[in-house]
Simulated scan of single mutants.
Amino acid sequence: MPAAKRPAPDAETRDDAEPMRAGIQSVEVGFELLEALSQAPGALMLRDLAAAARMSAAKAHRYLVSFQRMGLVMQDPVSTRYDLGPAALRIGLASLSRIDAVKLARERIDALLLETGHTLAIAVWGNQGPTMVHWTEAPQTVPVTLRLGDVMPLLTSATGRCFAAFMGHEGRDAQRIAPMLRDELARLKKLPRNGGLPPVDVPQTLQDAQAVLEETRRHGLARVVHSLLPGVGGFCAPVFDAQGRLALGLVVLGSVATLDTDWHGAPATALLRCARQLSADLGHSPAVRSP
């Protein structure tokens, strides 16, 4: 008995079955307008929006009419300027709510490891302070007795300095971090000194600590050399979320014999670039002031 014939696939089924189709060019072109609006500091006139999207005003207007109907764009009736609409906001908030910052950071670690050649880590703020939640060792690793779940000191680790500088600058977080800094300074004063000299790269007073944190904010990332462990240096770069809050810290560390500890050296530059891209991916804009 001959096999029954399969019904011919309809046009939609054939379209879905074709891998890696070229896509719909008009959608991609129209997205340039939405991208231009998302990058602008505020609403734009039609001519400025069209120029930013690299298209004629007439062409841009046709797309904007459709985007307005969909709620992706709105136009102020008085100024006639265009801005993102409520539908764009809903899509953006839904996307942000589904982003796992640590997962996103872990996806970048392998590439960053190849670029820096040194051990990398991810830290978040836990119940007791900045806490290590991910650790990836370089092939030629420096012996560091740190474990996942360890809480890092605020003044003798790059991780701690990063969180103290960018979380404790003002507001409620500053009120929480200030007593932690005082307690840590008190503990540091009780440590034995080598030959009567204070530890290297370790603040001794509250004024010293504030100067270190201000230097951290000025450079956009934290650095330690010898202070956590003798012969070890490291950097920690902040990653911010869409509200400008510190989401996590990206850490690179290694032996000072092999790790370039210059503020503008290759490891610091690569770490800061990765952290800024992660911040952008989380919805952070430099225009949003980080606390």
Rank of each mutant, 00 (worst) to 15 (best):
C236L: 07
V225S: 07
Q243I: 11
D241K: 03
Q210D: 14
F235Y: 11
R217P: 03
P238C: 06
E214Q: 09
Q210H: 13
V224R: 00
F235T: 02
Q204E: 14
D208W: 09
F235D: 04
P230C: 05
D241G: 13
V202N: 02
S227F: 05
Q207H: 10
G220E: 02
D208R: 06
P203L: 04
F235H: 04
V225L: 12
E214W: 02
V212L: 05
V225D: 06
V232I: 14
Q243Y: 12
P230H: 08
T216W: 01
P238G: 05
L213C: 08
T216G: 02
Q243M: 15
F240R: 00
G234P: 12
G231P: 11
R218C: 12
E214N: 06
L213K: 02
Q204I: 13
V224W: 00
Q207W: 03
A237Y: 14
A237H: 10
H226P: 11
E215Y: 05
A237S: 10
D201C: 11
Q243E: 15
L229C: 07
Q207M: 11
C236H: 03
Q207R: 08
L228M: 12
V202I: 12
S227W: 02
A211P: 06
H226C: 13
H226Q: 06
T216F: 01
T216R: 00
V212C: 04
A222I: 07
Q204G: 15
V232L: 11
G233I: 05
D208I: 10
A222R: 00
P230T: 08
E215G: 13
Q243G: 15
E215W: 07
F240K: 01
Q207G: 15
Q207P: 08
E215I: 09
F240M: 07
G233D: 04
T216E: 01
L206T: 09
T216H: 01
F240I: 04
G233S: 03
V212R: 03
A209N: 04
R218L: 15
P203H: 00
A209M: 05
H219C: 10
A211E: 13
Q210T: 10
R218Q: 14
T216A: 05
E214A: 14
G234L: 05
S227N: 08
V212F: 15
H219E: 10
D201F: 07
P238E: 02
E214P: 00
A211L: 13
L229Y: 10
A211V: 11
Q207N: 13
L228C: 09
V225Y: 10
D201Q: 06
A237F: 15
V239N: 01
C236T: 08
Q243S: 15
L213Y: 04
V239E: 02
A222S: 01
T205L: 13
D208K: 06
R218I: 11
V232S: 02
S227L: 12
C236V: 03
A211S: 13
Q210Y: 14
L206N: 03
Q210W: 14
D241C: 12
G233C: 06
L213G: 06
G220F: 08
E215K: 10
F240G: 03
A209R: 02
Q210L: 15
V232Q: 00
V225K: 08
L229S: 09
T216C: 10
V202H: 01
A211M: 11
T205N: 06
R218Y: 12
V224P: 00
F240T: 03
P238R: 02
R223G: 09
